[in-house]
Amino acid sequence: GKELVLALYDYQEKSPREVTMKKGDILTLLNSTNKDWWKVEVKATANDKTYERQGFVPAAYVKKL
């Protein structure tokens, strides 16, 4: 199945390749080969529509579930 990670801290994206997350968010882990930056998929809701974004977050800010 898919691997999930838990956001340990809030993170505000600093570039278009990154994604914003809030502490407590559960994210889908896409790639953890880089030890510093993990690629995740974030589900977000805006205007009653759910959309998914993929991007990088600092590996130290998340932990595998």
Rank of each mutant, 00 (worst) to 15 (best):
K23F: 05
N34Q: 07
T33Q: 12
W38P: 01
T50A: 11
K2G: 09
F56M: 07
Q12A: 09
K43E: 10
G1R: 13
Y51L: 11
D48M: 07
G1V: 14
Y51K: 12
T45E: 10
W37M: 04
L30H: 04
L27H: 03
V5A: 09
V42A: 14
Q54S: 11
V40W: 00
A60M: 09
V19Q: 02
T45L: 14
K43I: 15
L29Y: 01
L27V: 06
L27Y: 08
W38I: 04
S15K: 06
W37L: 02
K14F: 04
K43Q: 13
K2M: 11
D25H: 04
D48R: 07
T28G: 08
W37P: 01
T50D: 12
Y11L: 01
V40S: 00
K14A: 09
W37E: 04
N34I: 05
Y9S: 08
Q12G: 07
Y9I: 08
A44C: 15
D36C: 14
K14D: 04
L65K: 02
K14H: 08
K23Y: 04
E13Q: 12
W37N: 00
W37D: 00
T50P: 10
L30G: 00
A60E: 10
S32V: 06
T20Y: 03
D48S: 10
E3P: 12
E3I: 15
V19L: 10
G24M: 03
K64V: 11
L27M: 14
K35F: 07
V57I: 08
S15Y: 06
L29Q: 00
Y61F: 12
E13F: 05
E13P: 14
P16V: 09
L65Y: 07
V19G: 02
G24S: 02
L4A: 06
K2F: 14
E3D: 11
V57W: 02
L8N: 02
Y11V: 01
T20G: 08
G55W: 03
E52G: 13
R53Y: 06
V42I: 11
A7N: 01
L4R: 11
A46W: 13
A59E: 03
D25Q: 13
K63G: 07
N34V: 04
P58Q: 01
K39Q: 11
T20P: 07
I26L: 08
L4V: 07
T45Q: 13
S32A: 13
I26S: 03
L30R: 03
Y9L: 10
A60H: 13
G55F: 07
K2T: 11
L8M: 09
L27Q: 01
V40A: 01
L65T: 05
E41D: 05
L65S: 03
Y61G: 08
A44Q: 11
V42H: 15
V42L: 12
L6A: 05
G24Y: 05
K14R: 13
D36E: 12
K22M: 08
K43A: 11
L29R: 01
G1F: 13
E41Q: 11
V19F: 06
A59F: 01
N31M: 06
L6G: 02
P58T: 01
T28E: 09
V40N: 00
T33H: 10
V62L: 15
F56R: 02
K43G: 10
T50W: 09
K39A: 07
K22D: 03
S15M: 07
T28P: 15
V40I: 07
V42Q: 15
G1S: 13
Y9D: 07
L29C: 05
N34T: 05
K23M: 07
L65Q: 05
T50F: 09
D10N: 08
P58W: 04
K22C: 11
D48F: 08
L30W: 03
M21E: 00
K64D: 05
K2I: 13
V57F: 00
V19R: 01
A44H: 14
S32L: 03
L6E: 11
T33S: 13
R53W: 06
K63M: 13
K22P: 00
V57Y: 01
W38E: 01
N34L: 08
V57R: 00
V62K: 01
V62R: 01
K39S: 06
K43L: 14
E18P: 03
V42E: 03
D48G: 15
R17T: 11
V40Y: 00
I26Y: 06
V62D: 03
P16G: 08
D25A: 06
T45Y: 13
V19A: 06
L6I: 14
F56C: 15
P58I: 05
T33L: 10
D10T: 05
N31V: 08
S32P: 05
V62I: 07
Q12M: 11
P58C: 07
T20F: 04
D25P: 00
Y61T: 08
Q12H: 12
Y11W: 09
A60G: 13
K35Y: 06
K64E: 06
L27S: 02
A7K: 01
A7Y: 02
F56L: 09
M21H: 01
V62P: 03
S15F: 06
P16H: 10
M21R: 00
K35P: 14
Y9A: 11
V5P: 01
R17V: 10
D10G: 05
S15R: 09
A7V: 09
K35M: 08
E52R: 15
P16S: 11
T33I: 09
E3M: 12
R17C: 15
Q54G: 05
Q12V: 15
K64A: 07
V5N: 00
G1Y: 14
A60Y: 08
E41K: 08
D25W: 09
K43Y: 13
A59M: 03
A60S: 14
W38C: 05
D25F: 03
P58A: 02
I26V: 12
K2R: 13
K49P: 09
N47M: 10
K64M: 11
K63L: 11
L29E: 01
K49T: 10
K23H: 05
K64L: 14
K2H: 13
F56N: 03
E13Y: 04
E13S: 15
Y9T: 07
G1H: 14
N31G: 06
M21K: 00
Y11A: 01
K14I: 08
L27C: 08
A44I: 15
K2D: 08
L29V: 05
N31A: 07
N47V: 09
R17D: 11
K23L: 03
R53Q: 06
V57P: 01
K63W: 07
F56I: 06
L27D: 01
D48C: 14
V19M: 07
T20W: 05
L6D: 00
E13M: 11
K35H: 10
A46G: 10
W37Y: 06
W38V: 05
Y9C: 15
G1W: 11
Q12C: 12
Y9F: 14
D36Q: 12
L4F: 14
E3S: 11
W38K: 00
G1N: 13
K43R: 14
A59N: 03
L8I: 09
E52L: 15
L8E: 03
Q12I: 14
L65P: 02
L8D: 00
V62A: 02
A59G: 04
K22I: 07
W38R: 01
L27W: 03
L30I: 13
L27E: 00
F56K: 02
T50K: 09
S15C: 12
A60R: 15
Y51F: 12
Y9M: 10
N47H: 12
F56P: 00
Y51A: 11
E18D: 04
N31R: 06
K49L: 13
S32I: 05
K49F: 11
Y11F: 05
G55I: 04
F56V: 06
T45H: 11
Q54W: 06
I26T: 06
T33R: 11
R17K: 11
K23S: 07
L8S: 03
M21P: 01
Y9H: 11
K49H: 12
E18C: 04
Y51T: 12
K63N: 06
K14T: 13
L30N: 02
A59T: 05
A46T: 13
T45N: 12
M21I: 15
A7M: 02
E13N: 07
I26F: 05
W37V: 01
K39Y: 15
P16F: 07
Y11P: 02
F56G: 00
E3N: 11
G55S: 00
D10W: 03
K64I: 14
N34E: 09
A46E: 13
E18N: 05
T28Q: 09
I26C: 07
T45P: 08
E41G: 13
W38D: 00
M21A: 02
N47D: 13
K43T: 14
N47T: 08
D10S: 07
V40E: 02
I26P: 03
I26N: 01
K35T: 10
K14M: 11
Q54H: 10
G1T: 12
K63R: 11
A60P: 07
K64F: 09
N47A: 11
V62E: 03
A7C: 14
V57H: 02
E52N: 14
M21G: 00
D10C: 06
K43H: 14
S32D: 15
D36K: 13
A7R: 00
K63P: 03
L65A: 04
K14E: 07
K64P: 09
K43S: 13
V19K: 02
T45D: 10
L30D: 01
V19N: 01
Y11T: 01
K63Y: 07
S32R: 06
T20K: 04
T50M: 10
V62G: 01
P58E: 02
